[in-house]
Design a protein around this nucleic acid. Structure first.
Length: 572
RNA sequence: GCGCCUGUAGUGAAGGGGUUAUCACAAGAGGUUUCCAACCUCUUGUCCCGGGUUCAAAUCCCGGCGGGCGCACCA
């Protein structure tokens, strides 16, 4: 954060050129909401497309898309309703606000399970002091809900719902379909990009903390007994990592991913693999590798669902900012959704290498006795009997039914049968490894790292050195002058090139040629094609490389081929 | 949410209780020009919103909204 004016100039440029701007500005604006303008929206589209392609090109990951409106019950099961409903207490003398459960740390075994009244009485009876001013007066604890509530249905009695705080739940909901799609074989994954919502208390730092934000998440489902990993040797960069300070390593280390896993810093091989893939993605779209680091969460700051967690942080004008979270969510989500929804569809079958021979004893209900004794409940009793895993040592005994009630079973109600059977496999709940990307934060750092100012002729000349994969236009076409048919030639060339699939061309005919190069450089267009007199004679054009202004001359036919193959760089 | 600072064309700034609010760059039209923000002419466009004080408010006061920083919160 050396030059605070650089931040101002970057933000000004982003507004002026239509990259990122405040939303609803003519009505005064809304904190925490931003617009991507005409140029920014193209950059964002390219970043998201690169991201989806990065994860799905291996064939084991598919893209899905699910609603942002999410029924309350889903978010109760996921833990978000509890987690995002913290109570806050306000000091009456200095107006400072604190999380109520943090104030009574150590005074109750589970402070985060308490309601407002309980919290208030514990605060009162323990004479809790305000950490800020030292006074003892507290206002009633009030819930702070970071989720946007809404309701499904136009009338007031609609079903309770929230705008999703993350996209991950959509992938969990779709697990049965994914399981079928992948022929019932782990591992597999699903990605989703889209909006997430968090009603932040005070959004800050431009587009870093937003109330509505773009996220991109991958949920990768694995067998915990057979965790997959790719080739960790394939990237040999020494990457900055900050291991859990409570672990055996402390401080910073520079290490290859394979070594960090080998030394036990990264605990899970799939997590290590996704950290490597994350690093490849970020550097691939132009994030400076020297400004990337991975930080392991300490046990105390772990999100409620995660058992091991790494942040990928990127350094920019706001310091180190978390842009990606890579978490081992274990079986928490799927298991919780199974129990809350009452389904048993969120599991996977694990085939044993060799079938296991089970020999054991089982109770067989005697219908002729159970029927007359239990009447309507006879069916429940019978199934509970045959599902008993351990046979009680003696009769009579008490049998617990599904509804929690107990019945007495006498020896004439069941016979003991021996059974031998082959078990070929078992059902289990898959574990989930989740890389979650904050797209807006990544775009910010792309712009930050690309924003280069150099004083040509004592002027601030701005070049956005975006990687071609994320630049808003593939190239800019500029007729040198507006005469002798140069503009007409440029328009024909434009029409030919934009007919190519996915190619975006900028056509700029106004102002001097130098001004047009400057305009194109400022929004990061990597190539500028100039139409000049020679073009009119032999059909060749010049291509100028943004980052060093070097030009080459090619036929317009060659240009066509190189554009469609994204191989313009090979001409230089 | 609290405290301090702050809000003037697209961007950056100057000014300021009283005629039509100023400048640079940017943008548009035309001219000129044989490749890096050149030049000439013309043009478009601004005092965050609401209330108050006043003969008169963009200017002073209050509130809201937005922005920056610190605290708190959050990942």
């Amino acid at each position: 954060m050396a030059d605070s004016r650089r931040l101002d100039r970057l933000v000004s440029m982003m507004r002026r050129r239509g990259i990122v701007l405040p939303s609803f500005e003519i009505y005064g604006g809304v904190a925490g909401l931003i617009d991507y303008g005409p140029v920014g929206a193209r950059i964002k589209r390219k970043v998201i497309d690169s991201w989806i392609n990065h994860w799905t090109s291996g064939g084991d990951v598919v893209e899905i898309d699910s609603p942002t409106i999410t029924p309350r019950s889903v978010l109760v099961a996921s833990g978000h309703v509890g987690e995002f409903n913290d109570y806050m207490s306000e000091c009456v003398s200095c107006k400072a606000v604190f999380r109520s459960d943090h104030l009574i740390e150590g005074m109750h075994p589970n402070p985060d399970t308490l309601n407002g009244t309980d919290l208030d009485s514990i605060i009162l009876s323990n004479n809790v002091k305000c950490p800020n001013c030292g006074e003892f007066g507290w206002a009633d604890a009030r819930p702070m809900n970071l989720m946007f509530p809404t309701s499904i249905g136009a009338m007031s009695n609609g079903r309770e719902a929230y705008m999703r705080p993350e996209t991950a739940q959509g992938m969990f909901m779709l697990f049965p379909s994914l399981y079928r799609h992948f022929k019932q074989k782990l591992p597999f994954g699903a990605v989703q990009t889209g909006r997430g919502y968090r009603n932040e208390i005070s959004p800050r730092q431009g587009m870093i903390r937003l109330r509505e934000f773009n996220m991109a998440e991958l949920e990768y489902f694995i067998d915990p007994l057979d965790p997959p990993a790719g080739d960790l040797e394939r990237n040999t960069d020494e990457v900055l990592m900050i291991p859990d300070p409570d672990g055996s390593f402390s401080g910073e280390v520079h290490m290859k991913f394979s070594d960090a896993y080998g030394h036990g810093i990264i605990k899970h091989c799939t997590v290590a693999w996704f950290m490597l893939r994350t690093y490849e993605f970020l550097t691939g779209i132009g994030i400076d590798s020297k400004r990337i680091r991975f930080r392991q969460h300490a046990g105390t700051e772990m999100a409620h669902y995660a058992s091991d967690c790494w942040d990928c942080e990127i350094f920019g004008e706001y310091g180190w900012i978390e842009c990606v979270g890579i978490a081992n969510r274990t079986c928490h989500d799927l298991e919780s959704h199974e129990s809350h929804s009452g389904t048993n569809l969120l599991r996977s079958w694990r085939q044993f290498a060799t079938p296991k021979k089970i020999t054991g004893e089982r109770l067989s209900p005697v219908g002729s006795v159970i029927g007359p004794v239990f009447r309507q409940r006879a069916g429940e009793v019978s199934s509970a009997l045959s599902e008993l895993e351990e046979i009680p040592p003696s009769f009579p005994f008490l049998l617990m039914l599904k509804d929690g009630s107990e019945v007495e079973i006498t020896s004439d109600m069941a016979t003991i049968t021996k059974e031998d059977r082959n078990v070929h496999g078992e059902w289990f709940t898959p574990h989930v490894i989740e890389p979650a990307f904050g797209i807006d934060r990544i775009i910010w750092h792309l712009l930050d790292h690309s924003f280069v100012e150099d004083g040509k002729d004592e002027e601030d000349y701005v070049t956005l050195r975006l990687d071609a994969s994320v630049s808003p236009y593939d190239l800019s076409i500029m007729p040198l002058f507006d005469k002798e048919g140069m503009v007409e030639f440029a328009k024909e060339l434009f029409d030919k090139l934009v007919s190519l699939r996915g190619v975006q061309i900028d056509l700029d005919t106004s102002g001097s040629i130098g001004k047009r190069y400057a305009r194109a450089d400022e929004i990061g267009i990597p190539w500028a094609v100039t139409i000049d007199h020679t073009t009119l004679e032999d059909g060749t054009v010049t291509i100028r490389r943004r980052d060093d202004q070097v030009q080459v001359r090619v036929s317009s036919g060659d240009l066509h081929g190189h554009i469609s193959n994204s191989t313009i760089g090979s001409l230089f």
